[in-house]
């Protein structure tokens, strides 16, 4: 059996360690370099350094935590979606769920003062995340409807529908730019390329709850998702409630993607690469793939964010660009390796 790790427990341990290292690196590195002692001294309260406290508690920590949450949400959503579509190519970005969520967010930004006044008045601070969630849910439902016939998901249809939806949302987002003011335009760019630059504890709170919900609840469907890889009827005949499972997994996926997009814009590739790496490590059993993908996604986003901040310091790149620049070639390399293997 070609699996890199014979024991999933070992893989979990290594991923945890990698995550701690990435956290530490992200907290120490940046426009101002801090020592590991400054970071952990400040966090534990042993060190009383007002400057370090400002940099760490108010600037870097919310950003790292937000990055980890967003990465975990996108990756676990990707893993669940790939199980649901029974295809390793189903990524929230690729099939248009992220761009649907982003379009909804952009509409709230641009039209919030005019057409969507009632919406923003009703939801208040949550107008944007709720809209992003609704956008993501709508696109997921459309993709699933279009690409599934007789209980079988047609992959070509799914990807084509994704291209169509990405084109539609792209056009709609483009139209929005004509109505946008200069300030709104800057925010729009942020949505389309993805960024953690404006991370705050409020963002952490907004994205944290739905994504933790998704990370906590999706693994409950690991066993029906395993059966689902052999087909919808096999799952039903094995005694699982397929309709309930599909409804809940679709909603939780949209919830996680919507929340992630609401605070960080569109960060592609995490939902595709993270579950893929995890399957290389421990195989396709969802009981491990779902939680480990969340950890892997958190790790990937935190590391990419370090590069986003350091590469052209003191300015910074949108993390979506970094993720695509590293993730794209890496994924190609993986596909080349894949040719020798059988299955995903």
């Amino acid at each position: 059996m070609q699996r890199l790790m014979s024991s999933p427990q070992l893989a979990t341990g290594l991923l945890l360690l990698a995550l701690v290292l990435a956290f530490s690196a992200s907290l120490t590195q940046g426009a101002v370099s801090l020592s590991v002692w400054q970071v952990y001294g400040t966090l534990s309260g042993l060190l009383d350094d007002a400057y370090a406290q400002l940099v760490i508690i108010d600037i870097r920590l919310p950003r790292v935590v937000l990055g980890a949450i967003v990465g975990a949400g996108l990756a676990i959503a990707g893993a669940a979606m790939q199980g649901l579509f029974r295809n390793p190519l189903a990524d929230p970005g690729l099939v248009g769920v992220s761009s649907g969520a982003a379009l909804a967010a952009v509409m709230v930004i641009v039209l919030g003062g005019s057409w969507l006044k009632q919406w923003t008045a009703f939801w208040g601070y949550f107008a944007l995340p709720v809209a992003a969630f609704a956008g993501g849910l709508l696109v997921t439902a459309v993709i699933y409807k279009v690409s599934t016939r007789n209980g079988r998901t047609d992959v070509a249809l799914m990807l084509l529908a994704g291209i169509a939806i990405n084109a539609i949302t792209g056009a709609a987002t483009g139209i929005m730019t004509y109505f946008a003011t200069d300030e709104e335009l800057r925010t729009l760019t942020f949505w389309s390329m993805g960024s953690l630059a404006s991370a705050s504890w409020v963002d952490v709170a907004i994205a944290g709850f739905p994504i933790l919900c998704a990370c906590g609840l999706l693994p409950l469907f690991a066993r029906p998702l395993n059966a689902f890889l052999m087909g919808e009827s096999v799952t039903r005949h094995s005694g699982f409630d397929v309709r309930r499972m599909k409804r809940l997994v679709i909603s939780l996926t949209a919830l996680a993607v919507g929340a992630a997009v609401a605070v960080s814009g569109v960060i592609g590739f995490v939902g595709l690469v993270a579950p893929h790496l995890v399957r290389l490590l421990v195989g396709p059993d969802h009981r491990w793939v779902l939680p480990l993908s969340a950890m892997m996604g958190a790790f990937l986003v935190v590391v990419s964010d370090i590069f986003a901040r350091l590469l052209i310091s003191p300015a910074e790149l949108p993390i979506g660009l970094v993720m695509a620049a590293i993730g794209g070639p890496f994924f190609l390399w993986l596909l080349l390796q894949q040719r020798a293997r059988v299955g995903f």
Partner: peptide, 25 residues
């Protein structure tokens, strides 16, 4: 009652053991 369909499509590299396990609720 259990059902074995004419063909089972699987794209993911389960081990034989995992295939059996996936069907046991």
């Amino acid at each position: 009652r259990a059902v074995m369909p004419q063909s089972v499509q699987l794209n993911f590299a389960f081990t034989v053991e995992e295939v059996i396990e996936a069907g046991i609720r």
